Computed example of a mutant assay.
Amino acid sequence: MAFSSLKDIYIDQMQDIYSACKQSKAATQKLHDAATDDELKKALKAGSDGIQDGMDTLSEIIKGHGEDPTDEFCKGMEGLVKEVHAHVLDEDFSDDDVRDAMIITQYQRMAHYAIAGYGCCKAFAKRLDQTDDVTKLDKCLDASYDGDRHMTEIATGSVNKSAAA
Rank of each mutant, 00 (worst) to 15 (best):
I115W: 01
A155I: 00
F124A: 05
T105L: 07
I17F: 00
D100E: 12
S48Q: 11
D142E: 15
I103Y: 01
H65G: 13
A2K: 14
F124M: 13
Y18G: 06
K25F: 13
G66A: 10
R109Q: 07
D129N: 10
D12P: 02
G66R: 07
S59M: 13
E153D: 15
A27R: 04
M102C: 12
K22F: 00
K41T: 12
G47V: 04
A143P: 05
D8E: 13
K25A: 08
D56T: 13
S4P: 01
S144N: 11
S158W: 00
I61K: 01
I103L: 05
H87F: 07
D12V: 10
A101Y: 02
M110S: 05
K126D: 09
L31H: 02
D100F: 01
A143R: 04
S162I: 03
D138C: 10
A114E: 06
C121S: 11
D100L: 05
Y145H: 14
D90A: 03
C121Y: 01
L6M: 15
M77I: 12
K42L: 14
M1Y: 15
D37K: 05
A35K: 00
L89S: 09
K25H: 14
S158Q: 15
T152S: 14
L58A: 04
D56F: 12
A46H: 11
G157K: 08
K139I: 11
M77E: 03
A20W: 04
T36L: 11
D68A: 11
C74T: 01
D96Y: 05
Q52V: 07
K136T: 10
C121P: 00
G54E: 06
A46I: 03
D71T: 11
E72M: 15
Q29L: 15
D8F: 07
A155Y: 01
K161T: 12
G157V: 04
M55I: 10
A20P: 00
D132L: 10
A111Q: 06
Q15I: 10
M55D: 03
D92S: 13
M110T: 01
G54R: 01
T152R: 10
C120W: 01
E153R: 13
Q15S: 05
D33K: 15
D12H: 13
Q106E: 13
C140D: 06
